[in-house]
Design a binder for these strands. Structure first.
Lengths: 195, 195, 195, 195
DNA sequence: AATGAATGAGATTTCATTCAT
DNA sequence: CATGAATGAAATCTCATTCAT
């Protein structure tokens, strides 16, 4: 059970790839089946319904994202370093996996999200804790952690989208500048200087 | 174009409302017809197809958004004041019209967006010009205007979503703090202080 | 609304004919559509689902049966004459419409019947009243009307089935004998003689 | 044939139970397998197909019914006593095994019955012989044995169904009255009295 | 212009059956 | 013998679109 069954994984990955190109309703189960190399009926051994497949894919990807975020955190780094690492973890994850970003954005803005809201999100809790720590240790302005979390995460997503559009070349220097902007804006130090 | 035919407008507004609740693929034309109080066939007098209806709704809403942004700009205000006004115009528009936000987000992350990309976006141009002005006048850091635009707009959207989730009470003070953070981060002044 | 819409009626009649030959699950909607001369989707304008089609067919046929029974009753006939007329009405209806008999028998023994039980049956009430009258007027033995009703109706059905099997030629004389047997068994007179 | 293999029996009994609740087409093989505690594939070691399973179940139950009827017949009893015993054997069998009654009724009214008609029915022959004996010995009216058989059997089934509906309490006295009605109707004696 | 019944292609889902283990 | 994952044909049902009125 450690590794998802080969076929289940193939189905999830196929769905992810196809939803990016065709959207939810442009991706019939038959198409998923074909791309995954299984029979249409096989999908229903692993997932109760199309909705259930979408939900499980969402959970599956969120776990991946959490993993990525966790791995970015070096315990002996400073808080600011960890903030930068967190931001780049998100950014890199989304730019390397544009279909994941696309899927997430479709999902959270769809009626699916409403139904998934009841499930407590491990990722949200993780981010919440991270920003609370920054506030409590006096390194971040005293703003509600949900807001800071949304700002930082939303910011990484915005940049990843700019990258995805492809019109613009984003050099590492550009990115660092943006994160710096974000950090400067959120950090207590800037706040004090300006006041 | 000033006054859309009554029925056409009813169809657009009905679509908007229904897409928020049901998503694109959960909103059949028959449902739109019923909500708009017209026959199914009537929709096809005003729109070529469902896709065309979606596209026109997108244009229609973008015009609204542009209008809102334009009206927020007082010519005799300082650049920073106009920046704040711009941000609040977006924020207020999205929080007052959650279905618009929801529709936009669904749209831009769907395969529709790909097809709409060719159409030059007046809104994007407007924002681009606004941020270019800030850079040229030395009030904003020299970052690509697309990036600044994405950051500011994305930021307003993020906050509007936090508001939409409803778990959090966002006082005007909170919002001003956030825009301040954003401004501090983007403005040349902060940049100089930190260097 | 007096006459069922042409197409609706065609769908009902086609279903009836096909269920006799193929059974419930041997009669796909596509087959009904073909026989009724309509598109598959059209059925769903008139009926919510296949189950709903079956239920409506059941109601429709029960109304027919009630009509037949009602028409058999001449007000100026004696009770015994009316009993005979009732029995022959059922018998004739079922032998002339073997698919109705077949449908009823499949329906009442299927899980559908369970769901239809809540709906009060006009036919049952009519029969109940008829047999109660016979008991109250002293012409029938004092047995629960439901039982008498079931005996008489079940008896007509049994005979109609014998007819349907076709191995046996049932002359009118045979039938009259059987009804006579039934009447003799149920009537108070015989009861008294034997006691 | 005496002891069916454990598993084969489990499959048959599971099918019987499930068909009562779900009907033929509401009972997939997977459900039978689950209830019987075997794998889906295992069923196909014992039965060629689903149809074959249904047919064998029918035969299996008919053998049971014959057994029950046979055991009810005491050689030293009078004909009338044996008639009563026969009727009660059916009635008791069906009321104690409502799923059997339900299965039989579904089966004989389905397209399965058509295919099973070719197989000579031992039960029919047994009943035929019984009623022929009654006629030949002058105790029953001279009606075709098939008719008498259908009447008596149909009558027991009707009563068992009344019992099954459960709205009515059927005391033994009620039942005896009904059989008496039936006997009075069919017996030569009544016939003579009325003539 | 407006209607809404009708269409039929296509989507989701089921399930009898097979076969490698 | 037994398993149960896998199959894929076929069933139910949806819905964008048309067209006679």
């Amino acid at each position: 059970m450690e590794n998802l069954a080969e076929k289940k994984k193939a189905i999830l990955e196929s769905t992810l790839a196809l939803v990016k190109v065709n959207g939810f309703h442009g991706t019939p189960m038959s198409m998923v089946a074909k791309k995954a190399g299984v029979a249409a009926g096989t999908i229903y051994h692993y997932f109760e319904s199309k909705d259930s497949l979408i939900f499980e894919l969402y959970s599956y990807l969120k776990q991946q994202a959490i993993q990525v975020v966790r791995e970015s955190q070096k315990p002996d780094a400073t808080y600011q370093e960890r903030f930068f690492a967190l931001w780049f973890a998100f950014y890199t994850y989304y730019t390397s996996n544009p279909s994941v970003l696309c899927f997430f954005e479709q999902f959270v803005n769809s009626p699916y999200a409403e139904k998934a809201k009841s499930i407590p999100s491990e990722l949200d809790e993780l981010l919440h804790a991270f920003f609370e720590e920054g506030i409590n240790s006096g390194q971040l302005r005293p703003v509600a952690p949900q807001i800071l979390s949304m700002l930082a995460h939303g910011n990484a997503i915005s940049l990843a989208k700019v990258y995805g559009i492809g019109k613009l070349n984003l050099a590492t220097a550009d990115l660092e500048l943006v994160v710096q902007i974000l950090w400067d804006g959120m950090s207590q130090k800037t706040s004090e200087i300006n006041s």
